[in-house]
Write a protein that binds this DNA or RNA. Structure first.
Lengths: 244, 244
DNA sequence: TTATTATTGTAACATTGTGTTACAATAATA
DNA sequence: TATTATTGTAACACAATGTTACAATAATAA
């Protein structure tokens, strides 16, 4: 619940191209090395910070809308997205922050402005490499940036709890849906993979157990080549088996 | 996506009290003995069969709406509900069956009638004892009944796949969220519990392993009393520990 | 060339969780 | 008192995972 084209139309009648009362909020997790971050937007002037979000075109599939919204902010196409929950409490939408934002941006509105009405928000999460993303704000945001998971400010509405729920879902999906593999290169070492697991789960894993588990999945294929680099034994590279 | 008060208003302008374009579909699983069923509604005259569903009042929490909708059909209050997925593909709502239903019931409508528009549907599932439920149809349904899971007819729209997804969610939640315990009496035997598990998972479980697992959860308390009845050793009764 | 260093791959064992078999304990009935 | 069916649980098998140990390297330093 945050932004999109309709805001550019200042009459308050915009958004007729969108489904009413319905929004998508995207929790875009950014990973690199040992860091896990979340992409957040800050609204012009008011300083309100919120999840990136958007609305659903009347003829657009839900998952397509989520993909479009994430693309708009990250520039990345076809990244892995998972719908994790719908936030629909009536009390969740305090209209005041949005009022302030509209006022600060000189957007005409009365109390019936559609952005001030109740929204039901569908939560999606994504996982990307934040070094490959140049976040893209637009007119009504003065920033769109990565925040460390441990340093998230008070967000608009219930966005803090949305992030918490997304994180829980990500962690419990990690084994079931093999989400981590969406973030690996074509070829990667088991060490790379382990770092991602450790960062998402926020705990150390023991190497032998981790390797055994990953290899027992039966989806990895050892590439004959080896790594180059440092003063120690080189790890093997792996890729996904093609015979599956 | 199926029915509710607005249908009683035949002008086609009804439903302004509800959120637009948004519906709840409820997969109400009914259990008893070794049977697992689903509650389905059949529309008057047309014979179209669908999941019970409804809409969300503009000032109503999502979970409250789901609870209300399930109550309306089952008469049960405060039963366990779990939101499991949102179905939002644009193509999922073929308006024809609903047109036929409106026509057959002499409800005036044109192609812009709100019931013929696109709906995004939030899926909830519930688990109840079907012997404790007297299903309640209403004016535009000629039946509201329990269907065995193995004998579900072709349903309206994507309702067959909604049931499949609900069943998958129920099965995978069974251990994580301890859903089965919501259906147990105050006091129950481990045999009772095992029958429920076997019915939901549709497979036999071995008694010693099942008992060990349930007891190791640390949430059960053996009641000193024993069962009465048949010509063999009586099982113990259990209840939830109060010191948790 | 050889020793050093850090890190990898994996063997080996411990622990836990679960699948399976076996059997004693019992509650009614014959 | 014997019979019958079913329960509670011990005992073992096996799989998954936690943990320790160590040989196999790949670069660097000697």
């Amino acid at each position: 619940m945050s932004k999109d084209k309709p805001v550019e139309n200042e009459t308050g009648t915009a958004g007729t191209d969108f489904m009413h009362g319905l929004a998508i909020d995207a929790v875009i997790f950014g990973f690199h090395d040992h860091q896990l971050k979340v992409l957040l937007m800050r609204y012009n002037k008011t300083g309100v910070v919120a999840l990136p979000g958007g609305f659903i075109h009347k003829k657009e599939n839900l998952n397509d809308a989520a993909n479009r919204i994430v693309s708009e902010r990250t520039g990345l196409k076809d990244i892995y997205l998972e719908q994790f929950y719908v936030f629909g409490d009536h009390g969740r939408s305090d209209p005041q922050p949005m009022k302030d934002i509209l006022t600060a941006n000189n957007i005409k509105h009365d109390d019936n402005h559609w952005l001030l009405q109740r929204f039901i928000s569908i939560g999606y999460y994504a996982l990307v490499d934040f070094t490959k993303v140049v976040p893209k704000p637009d007119t009504i945001f003065d920033s769109c940036d990565w925040y460390d998971l441990t340093a998230i400010p008070k967000l608009m509405q219930d966005h803090n709890s949305i992030i918490q729920k997304a994180l829980c879902s990500l962690r419990s999906d990690l084994d079931n849906k093999l989400i981590a593999f969406n973030l690996m290169q074509e070829e990667f070492t088991l060490g790379d993979l382990q770092i991602l697991y450790e960062t998402i789960l926020d705990k150390k894993l023991l190497r032998p157990a981790f390797q055994r588990k990953m290899l027992s999945l039966g989806i990895l294929e050892r590439v004959a080549k080896k790594w180059t680099g440092a003063a120690h034994k080189a790890p093997y590279l792996y890729r996904f088996s093609k015979n599956i």
